[in-house]
Amino acid sequence: MTAPPFESDEVDLRHHGDAEVGGGLADFAVNVRTGMPPEWLAERLRASIADLAAYPDPRPARRAVARRHGRSAGEVLLTAGAAEAFVLLARVLAPRRAVVVHPQFTEPEAALRAAGHAVERVILTKDFTLDPVSLSGGTTPQTPRQEPFTSGGTTPQTPRQQPFTSGGTTPQTPRQQPLIPDDADLVVIGNPTNPTSVLHPADAVAALARPGRTVVVDEAFMDCVPGEPESLASRLPTGVVVIRSLTKTWGLAGLRAGYVLADPHLVGRLTEAQPLWAVSTPALVAVEACSTPEAVAEAEAWAAELGAERDRLAAELSTRGLYVVPEARASFLCLSVPDALGIRALLRQRGYAVRRGDTFPGLGPDWLRIAVRDRPSNDALLEVLGELGI
């Protein structure tokens, strides 16, 4: 099936998956890996409590992150999760024209708006992937996406064909405007993208960079991809900022652990804007521990297992006639369901929490995001969906 169109109404940028859970509901709304942290990491975190009387020292963790990505320590800023990184960037940068590529995690836009910046939204079409033609502006006409579920939306109109003019010249297809305005000096994009689970090619993301422009890439879910072939963390092209998080894979949402990779000058500016000792000693211990080759290998093995189960779940949902955003690569699926908000409410009555999609710019009331869990849990959700006629 092909994807439905996006909705353009204002949405609640501050709504996140944690607002969907609680009350004993089975959690398919939050994209944090369950059963984490592993015992070896939990043991180190418990031991770190003995050092809480001393102020945090970020240097060992910064060096560990630098080694992990082949960067210098001066290109690393440790943060209290990816969310703090977005706030710091919004405070330090002064964009004249900021563009956020949607659908994606809404905190970058929320942070920019809170800092007083105007934000333009670019909505990806064609299964929410970066289109090389539209990146630079081309002459290939866009094919409107078809619409299986149209609650609250409008059906795209197919442009009329230009008639052939005998004895004259063949009409030229107008050149499209580039996807990203040429004068945009700040562009924010996720990869893999939350909520669509789409992994963009590294070259396509790197192509967004140009002199005078900062490109911020949210790679919070990149460690869901074995080998991370599309990551820019090790390449770090000029003007590109990469944001990473330990929250998802290692189950550390309550600890707040993440980092920024950027050129040393920008890292210095961000450091000046960051409160002293912003990252706690336990979080620094986690960052250092999870950046070792052994931890990276463990995460990669999990990513391979995740991928197999994610693909199975996507196939099961697709056979039921649902549109699942294709080529999912993160720890969740994005799908279109008739009356998704109604289905979400019925699932809650049966003890299951899923993430509503209508609070993501570029989606609408017929979208849900579902976290991928272990096979028994996923099968239980599928059974309940079947009882609901899905």
Rank of each mutant, 00 (worst) to 15 (best):
V122Y: 05
I189H: 12
A94L: 07
L135M: 09
A253F: 10
A90T: 10
P132T: 09
Q146T: 13
L317G: 06
E309P: 01
A3R: 12
Q274I: 10
A118I: 02
L341T: 10
A83C: 05
E294P: 02
G153P: 00
A380P: 03
A110L: 09
L88H: 14
P56M: 10
D358W: 08
A262T: 11
R62M: 15
I243F: 06
L261G: 07
V324Q: 03
L335K: 00
S291D: 11
A82M: 02
T281I: 11
S151C: 01
P226T: 06
L347Q: 12
T106D: 01
L385F: 07
G81A: 09
L13F: 05
A315D: 12
P229F: 05
E305M: 04
M36G: 06
R269H: 11
L77S: 14
H69V: 15
S197Q: 02
T154Y: 02
V285F: 07
A303D: 03
F164M: 11
A304F: 00
R329P: 01
A85Y: 07
L124T: 11
L317I: 03
G254T: 15
Q161L: 15
E10F: 00
P159V: 03
V122H: 10
R59D: 14
G386N: 11
D379G: 04
P56Y: 12
V188W: 07
P103D: 05
V133C: 14
G81Q: 10
A110V: 11
D127Y: 00
D131G: 07
V198N: 03
P376I: 02
M36A: 13
D339I: 03
H102D: 05
A29C: 08
V279E: 06
G321W: 03
A220H: 10
E43W: 04
A257W: 01
F221C: 15
G307T: 14
D223T: 12
L347A: 10
T359M: 01
A289P: 04
T359Q: 05
D57C: 13
S136F: 13
R71L: 12
T281K: 15
T106K: 07
G362I: 01
F332K: 09
R348D: 05
E120F: 11
L199W: 03
P365E: 02
P159I: 02
W277N: 15
V215Y: 02
H117N: 08
G251D: 05
A273P: 14
V241G: 03
G212T: 06
P4C: 03
A295P: 11
E387G: 15
A42G: 13
W250H: 11
I180Q: 06
P192D: 02
W367T: 03
G116E: 00
L89H: 04
S231Q: 06
P132E: 04
K126N: 15
V92R: 02
V92F: 08
L186R: 14
E43N: 13
L130N: 00
L266D: 08
P159H: 03
T271V: 06
L78Q: 09
P95N: 13
T165I: 15
Q161W: 08
A202R: 14
L41C: 12
N378A: 05
A371M: 08
T158I: 00
A47G: 11
G22N: 09
P365Q: 08
V198H: 04
V87F: 03
P156C: 07
R175M: 13
F6Y: 14
Q172R: 15
F86Q: 00
P338V: 12
